[in-house]
Design a binder for these strands. Structure first.
Lengths: 161, 161
DNA sequence: GCTTGACCTCAACCTCGGTTGAGGTCACAC
DNA sequence: GTGTGACCTCAACCGAGGTTGAGGTCAAGC
């Protein structure tokens, strides 16, 4: 069903068809089209209007999926990828700079999660989760990619309870 | 704008109106309605069909927001909350059991992120991100609440490159 | 030269987590 | 008893991140 059929594969070329990219990356063709529409990928077109990708598209797609997996929205991934050269295959140095930037973001997220883990049980158990002094309710992060809804989590518990 | 207006507040009651819950939790009234429709919250109705919440709804809402913040979908939060007694105010013990279950999930997520962080730079830089042996591409987690799309991240890099 | 599967575009639809607005009711204060 | 603001329901809409399907083209193999 995938590559080793005797169908039309680009075979020995060093450009990849959209189907090949899909098979190798595990991402649906429709998603690759979508990523291209959204400006995360680019492709050359053949005379017959079919997409041909440079091999480094695989690394781009991998970067996209890994980034999404940790909760980074596509818009932010697009911005990050925009720092890569569009006209040539990015070097290891290019990728290094990119991933180093992500590292900071990841560090912050990990720290936030650890804080959450370390205080979840006692905070929920004792009721302070709804108090303004609780560390969990303090939106002190600058990740900018949290979930939907208001940025502040909880603000007040009043005099009661 | 919040509680101390001379408007209609439930005041000294120990039940809360939807507006009071919204003000104290930092969650919009529309979101509270939504949570109730989705079965995450319950309320009593007055003779005039208005919602009245027990005070422990604040802790429920806090739990919902904290959980969402780490990427847990509402459906999973609803299931977790279903383990709380619906007819009485949950005890500290009830909450403890709930948050303990979340802890495991959090531990797994943190570990996954750390693995990602520790291998992101070298994997992307060296190109192994697209290789099947890469640890980042290994979907060995059992979190069940990852992003959309295929669960496997990358499967193959072929003989080239 | 024809078949067949991979490819193309475009529009519609989907889930999630809500928000917005219309049209109407409730309840507290004066 | 009337005004005002908080409340009610219901339906429509939003943005993110895609998928699905219709209708048509391209290209490799026989």
């Amino acid at each position: 069903m995938v590559a080793p059929t005797p169908g039309p594969v680009a075979g020995d070329h060093d450009e990849l068809t959209v189907g090949e990219v899909a098979a190798r990356s595990g991402v649906a063709v429709s998603a690759l089209h979508f990523y291209e529409r959204e400006g995360l990928l680019t492709s050359r077109r053949t005379s017959g209007n079919q997409r041909r990708y440079r091999r480094d598209v695989l690394r781009r797609v991998a970067f996209i999926r890994v980034s999404q997996r940790v909760g980074i929205p596509l818009a932010a991934i697009r911005e990050a990828l925009a720092s890569l050269p569009d006209d040539r295959t990015p070097t290891a140095r290019d990728w290094y700079a990119l991933s180093a930037a992500w590292r900071e973001d990841l560090d912050a997220r990990i720290e936030q999660m650890q804080r959450l883990r370390d205080h979840l049980t006692d905070c929920i158990g004792c009721g302070c989760l709804s108090l303004r002094r609780c560390r969990l309710t303090n939106p002190d992060d600058a990740l900018g990619a949290e979930g939907p809804g208001p940025r502040r989590l909880l603000v007040d518990d009043g005099p009661g309870e």
